[in-house]
Computed example of a mutant assay.
Amino acid sequence: MRAVVVRSYGGPEVLELAEVPVPEPGPGQVRIRTRAAAVNPVDLATRAGHLVQGGLMASRDVTGLGWDVAGVVDAVGPAVAGLSPGDEVIGLSDRLDLALGTHAEQVVLDATAVARTPAGLSPEAAATLPLNVLTADQALDFLDLRAGQTLLVTGAAGAVGGFATELAAQRGIRVVAVAGAQDEELVRGLGAEIFVPRTRELSAAVRSAVPGGVDAALDAAVVGPAALEAVRNGGAFAAVVGGAAPVPLRGTRVANVWIRADGPRLAELALLAAGGRVTPRVAGTFPLADVATAHRLLEKGGVRGRPVLTP
């Protein structure tokens, strides 16, 4: 089968579509024939060697790319219940020790990392969900806000920020969204109550809209300390998308929320997407052989959604 790999680290030119052995599912695993796989910033970071430099991944001769997948189960390992060949599924590959990722014609995942794809959700749309919607959801769980409290979301027009805005609004949380001025209509449509254009004076702008500061911040744009300063004393701060968590000043509760695969919760979130309550956004589709173009598109910035590879 074909898979996207890198043998050295660098720009999009190091990406290679290689012939590799077809993986076999072990106990508790399923093999998925890929129909769509999103490209995320973590794939760019992996390709460039940042995960190795940061000590998150061991350097190796061949590194596969890809976290999200949508496709069809084509083989099931021992001790798997509830999934069978022919099932339409989505899943998340969250282990950094695996030789191959989801940017491949077939991928093996733990069954616990997989969810059925609801009717009405295309493979391309479904493939944009796992990494980004679970990151947003798990960050909101850490922040633990009640209905009526305020949440600052930076990067609210992006993938994680957009999902966070929608999910928070559905929990009754008042969302203060930060994005480019041109994205105000978009983020208000996702459920933001208050809009703050990107500015170097972020804390002052947010505190002008919410005197005393917001109850919590979900920092999808990796703003860091400037976003923390907009949070009230004793509030909470979630760093996501690989951003380093700032020092927990003023009694704030701070964490870097690292993604974990969660098939059952992904199934619930996918149903929200199929029902129109969560909005997948596909920023173009590309064949596996054109993966470098997808990387360049995402690297350029300003993309609303995720490029999707279609083997």
Results as ranks from 00 to 15, higher is better:
118 P>R: 10
244 A>R: 15
164 A>F: 10
238 A>S: 11
122 S>Q: 01
56 L>V: 13
292 A>P: 11
222 V>M: 11
37 A>V: 03
297 L>D: 02
203 S>W: 07
307 P>W: 09
162 G>A: 01
118 P>L: 04
203 S>H: 13
206 V>P: 08
104 A>H: 03
194 I>G: 04
265 R>E: 11
17 L>G: 01
188 R>N: 07
41 P>W: 07
283 A>I: 10
219 D>Y: 12
197 P>V: 10
56 L>R: 15
42 V>C: 02
275 G>L: 03
29 Q>H: 12
81 A>N: 11
233 N>A: 13
25 P>W: 05
186 L>C: 08
78 P>M: 06
239 A>S: 15
47 R>V: 02
226 A>T: 13
156 A>Q: 04
81 A>S: 15
74 D>W: 07
78 P>W: 12
62 V>Y: 00
217 A>N: 05
258 W>V: 13
174 R>P: 00
124 E>G: 02
305 G>V: 04
181 A>W: 12
119 A>G: 12
75 A>M: 08
279 T>Q: 11
24 E>H: 14
291 V>E: 04
299 E>N: 13
234 G>L: 01
273 A>T: 09
135 T>I: 08
198 R>Y: 14
245 A>G: 12
146 R>V: 00
84 S>L: 07
54 G>K: 14
286 F>P: 01
150 T>H: 15
133 V>Y: 11
301 G>F: 14
280 P>L: 00
116 R>G: 04
105 E>W: 10
137 D>M: 00
167 L>R: 12
224 G>Q: 02
199 T>Q: 05
277 R>L: 11
42 V>I: 15
80 V>S: 04
136 A>D: 03
291 V>K: 09
168 A>C: 07
155 G>D: 02
145 L>W: 08
